[in-house]
Simulated scan of single mutants.
Amino acid sequence: MQSLRIGIVAGEASGDILGAGLIRALKQRYPQAEFEGIAGELMLAEGCRSLYPLERLSVMGLVEVLGRLPELLRARKRLIRHFIDNPPDVFIGIDAPDFTLGMERALKDAGIPTVHYVSPSVWAWKRKRIFKIKQSTDLLLTLFPFEAEVYQPTGQNLRFVGHPLADVIPAQLDLNAVRQQFRPDPVSGPASEPGKELVALLPGSRGSEIKYLARPFLETARWLQQQRPGVRFILPAANQRRHEQLQQLIELEFSDLTLDLVLQHSREVMAVADAILIASGTATLEACLLQKPMVVAYRMAGLTYSIYSRMIKSRWISLPNVLADEEMVPEVLQQNVTPDVMGPLLLKALEDEPYRKRLQRVFGIIGEQLRQNASERAADAVVELLESRCAER
């Protein structure tokens, strides 16, 4: 089986990272393989053909989705029809379970082998989804070691592959070069001289996240700057559109801040920061792998939160705390996303040296657990599924 057609759909930027690594690993095994579906910039660079813009799928929250629901349903219906009319050898849905699992179920029923890459957070909420996942997918690739136990009642064909981010962080970072680019000021010890620290602000990549988090993050920066006048801030924008939004906000309301707005380079920015104020999401895992103190925050539409808060069973929302199985970083939600709450927490992250050292130790252990050469292991599992299907024919 040297020539393959592989359907692959990613729903947001984090899925684009996973998809690019998987495509690269599969191409090493099948150089002539063709990939098509929904791809971001990284997957496109690996040769995947995108049938629909990934940006249109990247929407968060129940209320926020409602306005886009007809468009999303039409897109999914067209993609399902496309793949049924032109069956790929395997279909891979990456995260975005509300979108991809429905596709996987329809394609599996049509006889197409299906893979779901990234377990939905069934350990946190809606645990009964494990039965829907079993019906929808022939193979589930999980990123975290604790997830296998959740699926035992279904006998799910599951493979823990580790997390690709753990394989590249910080190995792919030239810290000296990054430091020269983003913080040419000298540092002494694990943090800068008190009052001259660098704090990274990461309010998220989605438009809804910028809407709810950008202003309180900048207000918190102002609060901290009043406490420590020499502190400096850096804010990486996910793309040009977000850069323009943030630049306008900063120029109108926050020109007093000692702040650099940069385009992309969020990982590099986090690597050289002394502390991070960050939106809950995959970026918190990157910060964890970089062993950085952080304050995790999230705010969404009130109705969305009231629904979600009743459904969530996990004690924590952030991956660093979930993986450590204890509260290693503070989490701030909804009405508490204010400078009066987040500012003191961020100040503690800068000043408490015993806490910083313990955090580095715990986060180092997490990195070792997740460092499994994930893209290669995921590709091996997909190949095994393909070969078993060929043997059955």
Rank of each mutant, 00 (worst) to 15 (best):
Q2N: 12
L143C: 06
I169M: 10
L198H: 13
G19T: 01
Y212M: 09
G162W: 05
L385S: 09
R371Q: 06
A374S: 08
K132R: 09
G281S: 08
S192F: 15
F131A: 05
R267Y: 10
A171G: 13
I8P: 00
R68I: 13
F363K: 03
L198T: 14
V262T: 12
F91I: 05
R183M: 00
P87T: 05
Q152K: 15
K126Q: 15
T100A: 13
T258C: 12
A271F: 12
P339K: 07
R299M: 09
V332F: 13
F217A: 06
A25S: 09
D16T: 03
R228T: 13
Q245T: 11
P145S: 07
Y30H: 02
K126T: 14
R5V: 09
I366S: 09
Q240T: 10
I365K: 11
E376Y: 01
E209K: 03
R49A: 14
R76N: 11
L261C: 03
A191P: 00
R49W: 07
G61Y: 04
N176Q: 14
D325S: 04
F146A: 04
I234L: 13
K196H: 09
M1H: 10
R358Y: 10
R361H: 07
A374F: 06
P88D: 07
Q291R: 14
V178H: 02
G40T: 03
R179F: 00
R241H: 14
L73E: 11
M60T: 12
V382S: 03
P186V: 10
L158P: 00
I278S: 03
T142R: 01
S306Q: 13
L213R: 04
S314Y: 11
L303N: 09
V178F: 01
S136F: 06
L44C: 03
Q335L: 14
I234R: 08
G21F: 02
Q32V: 07
L57F: 12
V65E: 15
W316F: 08
G11T: 05
S119E: 05
R159W: 00
A177W: 01
K357Q: 15
G207Q: 10
P339V: 08
M294C: 05
S205A: 15
T338L: 14
P293K: 05
L259W: 02
L140T: 02
M300D: 12
L346R: 06
K348E: 14
A10Y: 00
Q225F: 02
R393G: 08
F35V: 03
D89H: 12
H116T: 02
Q369P: 00
W125H: 05
D256P: 00
A33L: 08
A106F: 06
L18P: 04
Q180F: 14
P70Q: 07
P190L: 15
D260H: 15
Q248L: 10
L165A: 11
Q245E: 14
G11F: 07
L4S: 07
E286F: 08
R105L: 14
Y52L: 11
R222P: 02
L173Q: 04
L198A: 13
S266P: 03
